[in-house]
Amino acid sequence: MPITPLLFILVLVLVAAVAGLLGSLVGLGGGVIVVPVLTLVFHVDIRLAVGASLVTVIATSATGASRLLRRDLVHLRLALFLAVATTLGAITGALVSRHVPTRVLFVLFAAVLGYSAVAMLRRRPEAAPRAGHSDAVANALGLNASAPVGEGGQVVHFEVRRSILGLVAMYGAGVVSALLGIGSGALNVPTMDVLMGVPLKVASATSSFMIGLTAAASAAIYLSRGQIDPLIAAPIAIGVLGGATLGARLLTSVNAVVVQRLFIVVLAVVAIEMLQKGFA
C-alpha cells in the first residue's frame, strides 16, 4: 500500500514523539533519532533530513531553555560568550555541508552516535565543581558565578577557566551541529563541565539554551537553500516537542537506568545502520 501524504505526516508525528520522549528522558535531543529515521526508513535525502532536524532542535531547545532560564539555571553570560563560536561554527558547517559527500555525512553521524552512546555509559553523577582559578577572559567578562546546584539547592560558587580553549571546542561543536542537524549537547556539556569547570547541571542548562542559537544560524542557511521542506519539518517539530514535553513530566516516574540502557542499544543499532549506509 503506498504511503499517502496524510499517513506520512501522522507517522512522522508519532515517530518524532517517541524520539522526543526518549531523548528528553536521557538528556539527548531528538535529532539523533530523527535524522536516521528519515534517511533509513523514509529514504529522505540526508540534507533535507538535517534541515528538518535543525528546526526540531530549535523547538526543543527553546522550550527547555525557557523553563531553565526562569529557574535561573542557565548561565546567560557564558552562553552568549560561547555562542559567538558555536554560531560561527554552525555557519561554517552549513556552508561546507553542500560540498561534503553524503557518504561522509552518514559515517560522521555514526561516529557521533557511537560517541554519544559511550559518553552515556560513562556518565558520572553530579560532583562538586573542580577546583581551579578563573582566567583573564572569564574575569573580564564576569563569567565566574554562583548557582543553586549544591545539595538541597545550596548555592555553589564556581570559577570559569580555559575560556579561549572552550571557544575553540565550541566552534567545532557548531560545525558538527550544522553538518548533522543535531544539538551537539553531547559536545557542549563536556566542554563546559570538564574543560571549563562549570558544574554539570549549569553546563546542561546553558547548553540547552546555546543549542537553539547554534541551530538557528545553520537553519537560516538551510532555509535559504531550499533544504527545509515544510512537510517534513513541521510534523517532526510537533511530534518531538510533544514527546519531549511528556518526557519532562515522566522524568521522575520512570526507571532512568532502564531507559538509558535502552537508548544506548538504540544508538548502537542506528550507528551500525548509518555506518552501513555510509560504506554501501
Binding site: 528546526v55 530549535i58 527553546a62 538557528a216 532555509l223 517539530a237
Partner: peptide
Amino acid sequence: VVVILASP
C-alpha cells in the same frame, strides 16, 4: 517553521 527559527 520560520517563527520557531526566529525565536532564539
